[in-house]
Design a protein around this nucleic acid. Structure first.
Length: 271
DNA sequence: ATGCGGACCTGTTAGC
DNA sequence: TGCTAACAGGTCCGCA
């Protein structure tokens, strides 16, 4: 369930259990996720300690004395803290055990997630260096987005989902942000005014912040290992609401495909 | 350079 | 009820 708020929630949830704890054992049951897990990961982590856990886009960056482990949850990945001794289930691919008696467990049924190791500055990593600004940073502002959008013919929705433009806007929050900003998802990015980009930037920040806040309420679930899905579902105004009345005008929410992804909007409120 | 479609996987659900 | 097809929160790659 990882969009940016879920990744951030995961980071906050697991950090107290993994930071400055001694790693006693690493178990890799499935080496091939989206890419091969580095064969040396095990020995790199053995007897090490994570000093810092950062998030960049949807990547989690674990700092050690000798390098960095980068982890992406893909579409179906999750990280849990469980006590040592709990039997792994079918899609529990990686365990990192600590001398505290706890295990950081990586589960990913669809195997779209990935784990990497780098000794370079993580921002220079081949998968990170091209990334656009964080949506909640000052760098991501009206002028930036407006400039980037000029002469773009693609839809504004696929535009804001492009990680080179801005990171962390996934399929759910793209629909939600455009709804909040009153912009039709199919409109050409180059054809949206400065004034409306101001609304969109504000909407993206508002939606993500509020979802992170909601995610905060499920920290306990993440940590204990029983993640309750759908905790923000009732906050959604457009996503997954096909044929249900728009909360603003009452017209039925529509669903179309854009870039092979379901896209929800109100034909009356979004122009 | 930009933008699109395909690919990677498995689980769940809708439809016949 | 049982099988099949479509679809799911991401994002990289290659081609036009």
């Amino acid at each position: 369930m990882p969009e940016l708020p879920e990744v951030e929630t995961t980071r906050r949830g697991i950090a107290p259990h993994v930071i400055e704890k001694l790693i006693s054992k690493v178990i890799i049951r499935e080496h091939k996720l989206r890419w091969q897990i580095p064969p040396k990961l095990k020995q790199n982590l053995q007897d090490q300690t994570f000093h810092k856990l950062e998030r960049r886009a949807k990547y989690l960056i674990f700092h050690t004395d000798t390098g960095f482990m980068l982890l992406h949850l893909g579409m179906s990945g999750s990280l849990r803290i469980v006590p040592i001794g709990i039997k792994p289930e079918k899609h529990d691919h990686v365990d990192i055990q600590f001398t505290t008696g706890q295990v950081l467990r990586f589960r990913d049924p669809r195997k779209f997630g990935s784990i990497h190791w780098t000794t370079d500055e993580p921002s220079q990593h081949v998968l990170l260096h091209h990334l656009g600004p964080e949506p909640l940073s000052k760098e991501f502002n009206t002028n930036y987005l407006f400039q980037k959008s000029r002469k773009r013919s693609q839809s504004v929705k696929t535009f804001i989902m492009d990680s080179r433009i801005v990171v962390g806007v996934g399929n759910i929050y793209a629909s939600e942000s455009l709804f909040l900003a009153g912009i039709h998802p199919k409109r050409k990015a180059g054809n949206v005014s400065l004034e409306r980009y101001e609304l969109l930037v504000a909407a993206i920040k508002t939606v993500l912040k509020s979802a992170i806040k909601k995610g905060g309420t499920t920290l306990r679930d993440f940590v204990s290992g029983e993640g309750k899905p759908g905790y923000f579902k009732n906050e959604l105004k457009a996503y997954d609401r096909s044929d249900q009345p728009c909360v603003v005008c009452g017209n039925l929410i529509k669903c179309i495909r854009l870039g092979q992804r379901s896209t929800y909007y109100c034909n009356c409120c979004q122009k």
